[in-house]
């Protein structure tokens, strides 16, 4: 079956079974490998991307629900050659270790800052519940606060 999705601003038509996980379509059909597979059961967050600006775990999201919607992956986070504040902060705080979980965390953080521009530690604990096997949580927390500063232009 054919589905129309707009991915990182580009219209695409994919012809797949409607129950195919969106992650499969992104990685294997559209060949965007930035979004990662971790658990396949909405538990780790490695596959987080945005569907109509909402953070979604794409491993558990059938592509049929993405029909006609706008998808943003880590490849589409920066705009006009500028790093997104989350990417900038991640770079400054040297967050990643192995890096595998990081795209999911960054997408979840970008969605958080759209809704809570200056999150408290409690907001971060409640909203960012992805899993990092390398335990980069401490640096991540610093980077989230830093991203909020950069985004609001308060200390860039």
């Amino acid at each position: 079956m054919k589905f129309n999705i707009k991915i990182n601003g580009k219209a695409e038509v994919v012809d797949v079974d409607g129950n195919t996980p969106l992650l499969w379509v992104i990685r294997d059909v559209l060949d965007l490998k930035g979004t990662k597979f971790g658990c396949g059961k909405a538990a780790c967050g490695a596959c987080t991307l945005h569907v109509d600006k909402v953070a979604i775990r794409s491993c558990s999201y059938p592509v049929k629900f993405a029909d006609g919607k706008e998808i943003t992956t880590i490849e589409g986070l920066s705009q006009g050659g500028e790093l997104h504040p989350v990417q900038q902060a991640w770079k400054e705080e040297i967050v990643p270790q192995c890096g595998y979980c990081q795209p999911g965390f960054m997408m979840a953080t970008a969605a958080l800052l759209e809704r809570i521009p200056h999150p408290t530690n409690e907001d971060i604990d409640n909203n960012i519940v992805n899993v990092c096997r390398c335990a980069t949580y401490y640096r991540m927390r610093k980077a989230i606060h830093r991203a909020a500063e950069i985004k609001s232009g308060s200390n860039s």
Binding site: S60, A111, N126
Partner: peptide, 30 residues
Amino acid sequence: GVKGGEDGHGVPALSCNSCHQVENNDLAGI
């Protein structure tokens, strides 16, 4: 640590719909 939040639909960047859609997903068990 999932929370219902103010309206029961989750917290701002982790809504129930981040994982739960309008029908069972038996491939992922959600």
